[in-house]
Design a protein around this nucleic acid. Structure first.
Length: 479
RNA sequence: CGGGGCGUGGCGCAGCCUGGUAGCGCAUCUGGUUUGGGACCAGAGGGUCGCGUGUUCGAAUCACGCCGCCCCGACCA
């Protein structure tokens, strides 16, 4: 049994951060690589986290006036071709469907040459074009605007280099698409959703971010402006955690999305799109993980309290189990973050010590251990995942069962707040603010660019003047 | 796609230089002993040594080719 996932615990000083990340993803039972290159299998614990993210974000999207719908996975090649920048941006990474039938030829199953599609279909890398096509039919009048749509879907981008959650060939996301009568309204929408993402990330994921505009070279293909929220990972690097785009009239012009204004004149709509993806799970790992594995913010923990009975194969086991069942039932009647507390009794027939560590690695916020002595004294013994260790020792707490049950909602809130505070402190204290020009910037990051071994020094971020509108000269700035 | 590294039971590795058909730790299974805690003893199962071709009496080990994975870079949610 490994005792820790890496040797050091200092932020920014993990000897091999990417390796640590992969270990946590595996040990926390979040996901595993699939037989298909670049794609992953999201396991129940990881998918449970995604479902909770979805649920909360979906509510926010609806509260801001958007309706969900679903557009097809396949997009006609000609649709993509309509917007020049869009083509240029995505052409290199598209999966293409060319046949609709397999045939056994020379003992080998292969696409039937006679079943070739007249027009190839591409697997959506994003849905601007196919949704725009629908918008062009749905929108006639200024009374149809704004049109506010969202979809939860999978998309495919044939990436050269993939990492679980952070960049996979196929990933899950939501993509919002809206159409507006003028630039001002569309820009308002773009910034509104950026703010939705910021608040969601900070309050639900406990992941502080910096919202801002991306430089021209980092813009979404076909956008006039791209905004993002950026989070700082424990290696000091930035993770683009969500984007919101003002698309101007580019897609409207390419796809003829027009409306008649109150004067009877036809004009092009201004559109937006915005999305967050399963990458957020990777962000949570790299924000909150430690040497013992994952630490999940309670708001997105599929199980917030896990009860591990200390069974010894003796008659008193029955009492222990009965006590635990009652405890879980009472916990499930409590409310935290506006929902029932998610509690689990882990009865799997393995050693209880191993069970405990499984839940530690998965990041369950509260882990409760119940033995005969607890039952006799009506106590619970528990650990808080966000504050697991006292030096090398595991910090174990004891409390009367009634008080514990009543305290769980408050403790979950505290854990959520503590995780946020730790990350926020890290973010704030690792932004260097006294860099004034490109020379100082190069000097600060210095050798980092020439590094080719694992030991990349922790540099954090730099706040520096920005050479708008291109940002090209300063693009090594780290954010 | 450029540079570097690596593919040996589920996981982590040794063996390769100096060819003689596999070994360790953890995990798994069985039995026993333990029991406020990441147990101990004994036994067992599990490997086409990434794939292919070649050299050789003999290849995990040598040569060539291919595939895959990881890191850095470029690009991206």
């Amino acid at each position: 049994m490994q005792r820790a996932l890496s040797a050091t615990r200092m932020v920014g000083n993990r000897p091999n951060f990417p390796e640590w990340y992969q270990n946590v993803v595996r040990e926390a039972d979040l996901a595993e690589p699939s037989p298909v290159r670049g794609s992953m299998i999201i396991k129940p614990w990881g998918y449970g986290v995604w479902e909770l993210m979805q649920k909360d974000l979906d509510r926010r999207i609806k509260e801001t006036g958007h309706d969900n719908c679903y557009f097809p996975l396949f997009i006609p090649l000609s649709f993509i071709a309509k917007e020049a920048q869009h083509v240029e941006g995505f052409a290199k990474e598209m999966a293409v469907v060319t046949h609709h039938r397999l045939k056994m030829i020379d003992g080998k199953l292969q696409p039937d040459p006679e079943a070739k599609l007249e027009e190839p279909l591409i697997v959506r890398p994003t849905s601007e074009t196919i949704i725009g096509d629908a918008f062009s039919r749905w929108i006639r009048s200024h009374r149809d605007l704004p049109l506010l749509i969202n979809q939860w879907a999978n998309v495919v981008r044939w990436e050269m280099r993939t990492r679980l959650f952070l960049r996979t060939a196929e990933f899950l996301w939501q993509e919002g698409h809206t159409a507006h009568a003028d630039a001002e309204d569309a820009m308002k929408e773009t910034l509104k959703m950026l703010e939705v993402y910021r608040d969601f990330s900070e309050t639900v994921l406990a992941m502080p971010v910096i919202p801002g505009e991306k430089s021209a070279n980092e813009r979404f293909p076909g956008a006039d402006n791209t905004y993002s929220i950026e989070a700082m990972m424990q290696d000091g690097k930035a993770l683009q955690a969500g984007t919101s785009h003002y698309l101007g009239t580019h897609f409207a012009e390419a796809q003829n999305i027009r409306f008649q204004n109150d004067a009877g004149e036809l004009s092009y709509c201004h559109t937006t799109s915005w999305g967050v993806s399963t990458r957020l799970i990777g962000g949570v790992v790299m924000t909150h993980g430690d040497d013992d594995g994952l630490r999940l913010p309670p708001a997105i923990a599929p199980r917030q309290v896990v009860v591990v009975p200390m069974l010894r194969g003796k008659p008193e086991d029955a009492e222990v189990l009965a006590f635990c069942e009652t405890l879980v039932k009472r916990l499930s009647e409590q409310t935290a973050f506006g929902e029932r507390v998610r509690a689990l009794l882990d009865t799997k027939d393995i050693r209880s010590a191993e069970k405990r560590w499984n839940w530690v690695r998965r990041g369950a916020p509260l882990i409760v251990e119940i033995g005969p002595r607890d039952v006799a004294g009506a106590n619970v013994t528990y650990m808080r995942r966000e504050d697991l260790r006292d030096g090398d020792k595991v910090r174990s707490h004891s409390q009367g069962v009634d008080a514990f049950v009543a305290n769980v909602p408050a403790m979950l809130s505290e854990i959520q707040a503590t995780l946020y505070r730790e990350a926020k402190t890290r973010l704030d204290s690792n932004i260097t603010r006294d860099v004034k020009n490109l020379g100082e910037l190069s000097e600060y990051f210095g050798a980092a660019a020439a590094d080719d071994d694992d030991a990349v020094e922790f540099k954090g971020w730099v706040r520096a003047p920005w050479s708008a509108p291109t940002g090209a000269a300063l693009r090594d700035g780290g954010n």
